[in-house]
Design a protein around this nucleic acid. Structure first.
Lengths: 175, 175
DNA sequence: GTCGACATGTAAATTGTTACATGATTTA
DNA sequence: TAAATCATGTAACAATTTACATGTCGAC
């Protein structure tokens, strides 16, 4: 029973408020959520999958064919497990947006201490990765202007996330 | 004959130097390229696809089963077309990393004027989107700490890209 | 002479996208 | 009453991932 990123995002969204498939779609359409398509062919099959795995429960509104989806206790467990996964170097290099997504779903499901550990780990891995990127650019001379600029954007972005990490650490600590 | 992002990235990589499937895989493994998997099952079928569409040519090294892939004139055309696509609001919201990727492949294939147009359009759309994000956060009060922090990270990131855009515009202009 | 890196591929399963299809309700 | 929005779904297709499978070459 392995879940896709889409499954986790949907669980993250329905964790407080039961939502209809339609409202979930709208959230995918309007926000930057996971760069998934908001088409019905994406969301409804995912909801069906989650229902099959007993992670959400479909509650019909009497009379209509409308329904909204509640998270189940098993769904909470699955979500919590995902949120608790340790951060790896690969997450920094290739899936940094997923880390931010995970953080945004931690509000009440994760204890304060664990949130702080997450941010510390995030911060430290960012520092290492930024250093590596900077070392790399100094070693290599054969890059053209566009390559250099693209790498510079990477470094700038990671530095921004590092700053954010430190800020978030302060905010969470004093919460 | 529609191409996937993966196709375009491969074309972008082989545009100057002919590469073997293996080296392409290594590039995907070592860099943040497109968050695609670097497994053979991803790269080799894509190369086959590109070969079928006559966008790359497979050149065998005599004696061995090793080969490297050259871009064809049709491949250059296809790549150029992709690089020339206008930027849409959705690209900013959902696929900003693709815009950076496109920029990094523009080195020699795109004329200076067109590069500048690209960056100006990028910059202006970023400005609009950042404003929208800021308006949104001021309107909504019902966000919890984690939601607020996540949105703040989004704003910080877009602002960093905006700054980078202006810097790149200067660099390209004086090149 | 074995381990790791180089090197290329296929098959099955899953997933996500596009396009189609339908109907209720609200608003101009 | 027509259009837009709310609302849910399916089917065909294309794509990616995972796992399997094989073989060479150089270094230690």
């Amino acid at each position: 029973m392995k879940h896709t990123l889409l499954d986790y995002i949907i669980l993250g969204l329905v964790q407080y408020e039961a939502l209809s498939g339609y409202r979930i779609r709208k959230m995918f359409e309007e926000t930057a959520l996971g760069n998934f398509s908001s088409s019905p062919g994406t969301i409804y099959p995912a909801l069906k999958r989650l229902e099959k795995y007993e992670c959400v429960e479909k509650v019909l509104k009497p009379g209509t064919s409308n329904a909204h989806f509640h998270i189940t206790s098993k769904g909470v467990l699955v979500l919590k497990e995902w949120l608790s996964e340790p951060i790896e170097r690969e997450d920094i290099q290739k899936r940094i947006h997923v880390l931010l997504l995970r953080f945004s779903f931690m509000e009440t499901l994760i204890r304060k201490n664990q949130k702080i550990d997450f941010l510390i780990s995030f911060r430290d891995l960012l520092k290492i990765y930024i250093q590596e990127l900077q070392d790399f650019t100094q070693q290599t001379n054969d890059m053209q202007l566009h390559g250099k600029l693209a790498v510079q954007h990477g470094i700038d972005s990671y530095k921004t996330t590092l700053k954010w990490c430190k800020m978030a650490l302060l905010q969470i600590s004093k919460s």
